[in-house]
Simulated assay, not measured.
Amino acid sequence: MADASAYPDERLRRPAMGRSLRLGATRVSYVPDGVLLGRPGAWLPDTTERTWAEHPEYLDASGYVVASVGSLLIEHGDRALLIDAGLGPYALPADPATPNGPAHGGALLDNLAALGRRPDRIEAVAFSHLHPDHVGWAAHIAPGADRPAFTDAAHLVAEPEWARYRRPKAGQQETLTALAPQVRTVADGEEIFPGVRARFAPGHTAGHTEFVITGGGHRLIAFGDSLHLPIQVDHPEWRCVWDDDPAAAAEHRRRLVAELREPATLGFGVHFADVVFGHVRPSPSGPAWQPLDEGDAGDVRDVRDAGDVPGDGEE
Rank of each mutant, 00 (worst) to 15 (best):
V270Q: 08
E237A: 15
R147W: 01
A250P: 01
F277K: 03
R184W: 07
D133R: 14
P230G: 06
G144A: 09
R147I: 00
P181V: 05
V241K: 00
D245L: 01
G189D: 07
Q182A: 14
E191V: 04
A273R: 00
D245Y: 05
D225H: 11
A258E: 13
T175W: 04
D245I: 00
A258T: 11
R261S: 13
G203R: 04
A206Y: 09
L227V: 15
Q173G: 14
W242Q: 03
R255T: 11
A264L: 00
D133Q: 12
L220S: 05
D225N: 12
P194Y: 04
R197T: 14
T175V: 13
G189T: 08
R166W: 11
A180T: 13
R184H: 15
G144T: 10
R253W: 05
E190V: 06
W242E: 00
V276Q: 06
G203M: 09
A170V: 13
V233N: 05
A153N: 13
Q182V: 05
L260M: 04
E259D: 14
H134R: 11
D243P: 00
I231G: 01
R184M: 13
V157S: 15
P160N: 11
I231P: 01
P148Y: 12
L220P: 00
I221D: 06
V196S: 06
A249S: 14
R147N: 05
G215Y: 07
F211Q: 10
E259P: 07
V275Y: 10
P236I: 06
P263G: 05
T151S: 06
A201D: 08
A163G: 10
L156Y: 13
A249E: 12
A142V: 03
G144S: 07
H235C: 08
V276D: 01
G195C: 06
H235N: 14
V233W: 08
T175E: 10
V212G: 04
H140C: 10
V270S: 11
E190S: 07
F211N: 05
F200S: 02
A154V: 12
R255V: 07
T151M: 01
W238D: 08
D243S: 02
R197E: 12
I141L: 07
A247M: 05
I231V: 11
A198F: 02
V275Q: 09
A222K: 09
H155M: 15
L179A: 08
R261P: 13
R184V: 15
A139Y: 03
P168N: 02
V233R: 02
G195R: 09
T185S: 03
H218L: 08
H218T: 03
